[in-house]
């Protein structure tokens, strides 16, 4: 029997309608314990309305060394932003 607790990443939604945010991790033997530990560790002052825990090994992250080329496709597409467009003076509701 292995005697190691598993590492879980913890995400908290601070208020209904807001996105979940990564806050840190906990060690726990199963998902139930991970949720309880996350509650005790990260929400002692009502910081959350909901918690997600995910086994750390299941997180796939982009490689910081390649972030330049990885995010490159978005760099030259300024027409994706509303400020790119020429509009006549005085136009409203657009």
């Amino acid at each position: 029997m292995s005697n190691h607790l598993i590492l879980w990443e913890v995400f908290i939604q601070s208020k209904v309608n807001l996105p979940y945010k990564h806050v840190g991790n906990v060690h726990a033997s199963d998902s139930e314990m991970a949720l309880q530990n996350a509650r005790d560790l990260y929400t002692r002052r009502n910081e959350g309305t909901s918690i997600w825990v995910v086994e750390s090994k299941n997180i796939i992250a982009s490689n910081p060394d390649e972030s330049e080329s990885f995010f490159d496709p978005a760099n030259d597409k300024i027409y994706r932003h509303p400020t790119f467009y020429d509009l006549p003076d005085g136009v409203k509701h657009i």
Binding site: M1, A28, S29, M33
Partner: peptide, 12 residues
């Protein structure tokens, strides 16, 4: 306690 927690999760 740590052993029991791991054993319990393995059993489940």
């Amino acid at each position: 306690v740590r052993k029991a927690a791991v054993a319990y999760s393995e059993k489940k």
